[in-house]
Design a protein around this nucleic acid. Structure first.
Lengths: 109, 109
DNA sequence: ATCGTATATCGCCGATATACGATGAATGGT
DNA sequence: ACCATTCATCGTATATCGGCGATATACGAT
């Protein structure tokens, strides 16, 4: 039941990790974590990237479900989804534990 | 001293996560974790990919330092580098803990 | 020497990612 | 009404990815 249905999970996990596999996005995430919430411009001032580029990166993070987006009146409100982030951490941790366990315990000898 | 020198670390972390951000590579890692070590052909038979493609994915994993490669006489020996994998896990965990902590506790220290 | 097997690499392509400037929409201030 | 600010999106250019077949390399067996 595990091995076959894992395909979806693999893709999901890969997708989320993909969202984290860019230094700018990690930096954005770190900045968002440091402040309660902030707008796009604030992130632009932190990183040395064009506003459109930052907007794209934010979109990637939002699409991956790691950041929440609340379009407010004038400025957009971005904030880390700490719950989702923790879930990803747990998920990856599970994978790593599996992969760090010696095969003796897992294989049928 | 942390915020400025983090750039390198960000890239390193992003690179490693990038190596994991593909379902085929996660699957390869899982398979490698299940057996003590194996050759390329064995991985090819597990996944439904061409041999050259698998070889590429293995190369990515090796370049990222997550898999060790020992070219033996005839078949190649691939095995998970469990230590490196654990280190990556710890590293990411640190990032996530930082990002999952409310800003009140992390702001002015 | 030749053949078969296992592997790595090359060349190629379509697709995707990354970055930018420009543009337009929405809003707040004057 | 007008302008400045903020933002998302579009269009474009470039780079990288992901996959495959074909080929080169290495080696054991015959």
């Amino acid at each position: 039941m595990t091995r076959s249905a894992d395909c979806r999970e693999l893709k999901a996990m890969a997708g989320r990790l993909g969202a984290l596999s860019h230094p700018a996005r990690i930096a954005i995430l770190q900045h968002l974590a440091g402040v309660e919430a902030c707008c796009c411009k604030e992130v632009v001032q932190q990183l040395d990237l064009a506003q459109s580029t930052v907007s794209q990166h934010l979109k990637v993070l939002v699409d991956a479900g790691l950041v929440r987006h609340t379009p407010e009146s004038r400025r957009s409100r971005y904030e880390v989804d700490r719950k989702e982030l923790a879930a990803l951490g747990a998920s990856l941790n599970g994978l790593l534990v599996t992969c760090c366990t010696a095969p003796e315990a897992a294989s049928a000898d």
